[in-house]
Design a binder for these strands. Structure first.
Lengths: 336, 336
DNA sequence: CTGTTAGCGCCTTCAG
DNA sequence: CTGAAGGCGCTAACAG
């Protein structure tokens, strides 16, 4: 490996001069510059980014920690993040936790000490945890983040209105005349899941409906889990006339289960999802859902992070309202 | 920021000792170890990974350069890659090129000099290009890679049989009795695209059919592009009775276009895709496609890369056969 | 077993 | 405008 020294010797100048022509950080006479450039060329010199990073105490690198990068929602967030960091010439490390506490912690640990910033959708890890590992590196949380205590001065936050969104979804169902409404919930004890459950309950209570525990399913945020959850719900006696799914991926599975059971959607059962992923438009029937656009969230998160890295001091929070998108998977219950 | 020196002083030992207890790289008496651990704790010391990396001349980091991480195919590849690198405690940087030459080059440049390895699906960049930027860091190409000259000694390769797969797809259509077969091709002049086109042509020639240029569409690998491509094909006079799509994402769009035109699939027109992404099972009708499983490719690529990084010297190549998965989007043409 | 010391490759004052 | 020298934080011989 050829170093700056080699280049300097070859060009008959000092390393400082080489550094200056490379980084354009000070005027260098055309002649020397030329010699340096030549030396670089002939020696096939490539600067060592690590050494530079150590020296400047900063590396153009951020991390994105999400449950699963192969989930369409998060893959779009990831793309949006990359698109903005790319403008700053920052790279992004992507980590999939599968919502496992152990992995959340492990990633934080392994990222600490070199990454310049982190965008994180935590399931279990708290603010305190995170700071313990990450120290003072900027963090922007995307999504809910329950623990609100402690020193959040190096934290930013971008999120949607999970509870409100869930409430809207269920109110939509109630407005259509549904009374027996199921809920396929995501992994319990996670911030997002809790808010959506709260919204579900709130809507029912406001309408004076009682919650039938048998109509609550707790599953993972996967299509297959959604399929199974829905299949189980459909066997209830009597089955729900409408089902709210904690996210669109679950809803996709639910749609599938309904089809398998010979259940017409929305004739026999209405289904509403959450997130509005791209697929939601393309299902049959197209999915009624709550919009919480991943592209916008990802972009906002990345922008906040870059601002932070560039020096902003005050914490910022952005919340997007969630809006109901009515498509064709919901209708009044039969006989209404 | 507290450094190893601080810890050493606080604990009344040398930095070497601190390093040893941290990395468990040599026996340290329980007493000293205890003191060091305490100092670390009370000073809230966090090792600087960059410095370590510089010193060890290696950083546990690889890059994955693909066209688009939000594309389901690549997001699954990415997940598979992460799952294996994770076992080695390596992080992975993800870059989306959108198939743009400029970006391919830029990512290679910005990654050079610090990343330990690269997994790359190139559209335009050649072997020579890549090496010029990357020097001797291990590279594994996933997918086709046309330029076969030069010193490939630091290269590995994992791919599927694009040409053979395409041929199978079209032969399947021909076997069903189709004679007028359209092709919605991916971006021209890219390795993968060329192979699939070659397979398409080959199948037609073997069957003694002539290629109708009007039935060839060149589009991007996106759903929307597929939709438009299909819409255009459907306006041909006479329209094709079957369409081969260069990948499943295009096929999803094609399915949509057919639906919009009131065209029954497979009644009026058969559609076959390529890749077998997860969605392919869930479309209506489920998509006949060529399997080139992203999970397996990603896993293999990552494993080859890690082996390389750990010292393997001989180049390796793995090719997976492509297999036809017949589902319900293909049938004999009407009146057959 | 512990401490000293010399790098890793680059950046950056600071004299000349 | 150029070059010498110190330092970024850590690792790895090599003495003791």
């Amino acid at each position: 490996m050829t170093t700056m020294r080699d280049v300097a010797e070859r060009a008959g100048v000092s390393v400082a001069t080489v550094s200056h022509v490379i980084n354009d950080t000070q005027y260098v006479s055309p002649e020397l510059r030329e010699r340096v450039l030549n030396a670089i060329e002939t020696l096939d010199y490539r600067p060592n980014k690590l050494a530079r990073a150590l020296s400047k105490k900063a590396i153009p690198l951020v991390a994105l920690i999400v449950p699963d990068i192969s989930n369409p929602y998060w893959s779009i967030v990831a793309r949006a993040v990359q698109d903005v960091t790319d403008g700053y010439r920052f790279s992004v490390i992507v980590c999939s936790t599968d919502g496992l506490f152990e992995r959340e912690v492990r990633f934080l640990q392994s990222l600490a000490g070199w990454v310049s910033g982190v965008i994180f959708h935590p399931y279990h890890v708290t603010h305190e945890h995170t700071n313990r590992h990450l120290g003072k590196v900027p963090v922007v949380i995307v999504g809910e983040f329950l623990s609100d205590e402690g020193d959040l001065v190096n934290w930013d936050h971008v999120g949607g209105d999970n509870q409100g969104g869930a409430r809207q979804a269920v109110e939509h169902l109630i407005d259509l005349g549904h009374r027996r409404i199921g809920f396929i919930q995501g992994p319990a004890d996670t911030p997002t899941s809790e808010r959506r459950l709260a919204g579900f309950q709130q809507a029912l209570e406001l309408a004076g409906l009682v919650i039938d525990e048998r109509l609550l399913m707790v599953v993972d945020y996967t299509r297959e889990a959604g399929r199974q959850g829905m299949a189980a719900l459909l066997e209830a006696e009597p089955p729900p006339t409408a089902v709210f799914c904690a996210n669109d991926v679950i809803a996709l599975g639910a749609l599938e289960a309904a089809k398998e059971c010979g259940c017409d959607v929305p004739g026999d059962v209405s289904i509403v999802g959450f997130d509005d992923i791209d697929e939601a438009v393309h299902t049959s029937p197209p999915l009624t859902t709550i919009r919480q656009p991943p592209r916008r969230l990802g972009k906002a998160a990345a922008e906040m992070l870059m601002e932070r890295i560039e020096g902003r001091d005050e914490p910022r929070r952005i919340f997007y309202d969630s809006s109901l998108i009515v498509r064709e998977s919901t209708a009044p219950p039969r006989g209404e």
